[in-house]
């Protein structure tokens, strides 16, 4: 507009486009190049890890893997698969009620000083190295309580590790429910227990489940806390909670790769394949559940 008016008045205008200096253009280009490079390095590492595990594990993925037990240098992985499932599900059974109670407390009564303290301590507990947890389990349960390498010791050690994760995801899920829902519940005369179990937990269930899936994935992938609590066994679990060690997949990865036999190495890669894909599937499934339920319910939005 302005240019046209000026031109009708007989004044010439020169259209001047803004152009950044060469230095800035080069800086930008180099910056984006570095950023792309950073991302490509990460992507390369991811695909290298997954690719290595898939390629090396592929030749051994036969039914025998799931039907035979390990025998020291080879065999199958039946006992280790069973052990991994027992340990993760067991630790979940211990950690879920406690962690969810802590999460409910944090979201419903966590505004004060005690809530902040609990939140802070649970953040610190996340930072405790897993091998330290394992050594604690060894001292407290394996030696002091005399349980020996056992399912119970492994399960409780893993459960301590999972507590803060479950507490955190429960707290976030509950906090997302608007206060009007709580007020409606109390207005209809519900007690606090009633409100939590009948109204808040069902509403927050998908998000809590996502957190629990994440916790199971985490416990399946752990090795260090189990080395000195669950021990290792070449046999199937016989149902005893104490005095009997149990096998698990991550141990196979670590110990069989150090054996000098090709068969052991293949078994290690097969175990890595099962663990990695189990973990990734659990996490993707949790995400998918969360997205789907939010779409379906509108999730109080």
């Amino acid at each position: 507009m302005a240019t046209e008016i000026l031109e009708t008045m007989g004044i010439k205008t020169v259209e001047k486009r803004y152009a950044p200096s060469w230095r800035r253009q080069w800086g930008n280009a180099l910056g984006w190049l570095a950023i792309m490079a950073a991302f490509l390095i990460l992507a390369g590492a991811f695909f290298s890890i997954i690719g290595e595990v898939v390629v090396k594990a592929f030749p051994v993925l036969r039914p025998a893997l799931f039907a035979k037990i390990t025998n020291g240098i080879g065999g199958g992985l039946k006992n280790a698969i069973e052990g991994s499932l027992v340990l993760s599900l067991g630790s979940l059974l211990v950690a879920a009620p406690i962690g969810m109670a802590a999460g409910i407390y944090l979201s419903e009564h966590g505004a004060g000083r005690w809530g902040s303290a609990l939140r802070f301590l649970s953040d610190v507990l996340v930072g405790v190295p897993s091998i330290v947890l394992g050594y604690f389990g060894y001292i407290a349960m394996v030696i002091y309580l005399g349980w020996q390498f056992s399912v119970a010791a492994g399960v409780i050690t893993l459960a301590v590790m999972l507590l803060p994760y479950i507490a955190r995801s429960t707290e976030l899920a509950m906090a997302n429910i608007p206060n009007a829902v709580r007020e409606a519940g109390y207005g209809l005369g519900a007690g606090e227990g009633h409100l939590v179990f009948k109204v808040l937990l069902p509403g927050a269930a998908p998000a809590i489940m996502t957190g629990i899936f994440y916790a199971v994935a985490l416990s399946m992938g752990e090795t260090a806390p189990l080395l000195y609590t669950a021990g290792w066994s070449n046999y199937m679990w016989n149902g005893h909670m104490t005095q009997e060690p149990i096998g698990y997949l991550t141990y196979v990865i670590w110990s069989f790769i150090n054996e000098p036999f090709a068969e052991s190495h293949m078994l290690a890669f097969a175990a890595a394949f099962l663990i990695t894909f189990g973990v990734l599937m659990l996490i993707l499934l949790g995400r998918w559940m969360l997205v789907r339920s939010q779409r379906k319910l509108g999730a109080y939005r």
Binding site: A217, I257, I275
Partner: peptide, 19 residues
Amino acid sequence: FVDLLASIPSVVYGLWGYA
């Protein structure tokens, strides 16, 4: 996918490093 990188078990990272 970056988040998935965080969830790969540490022993698998070790295996990748080793192999």
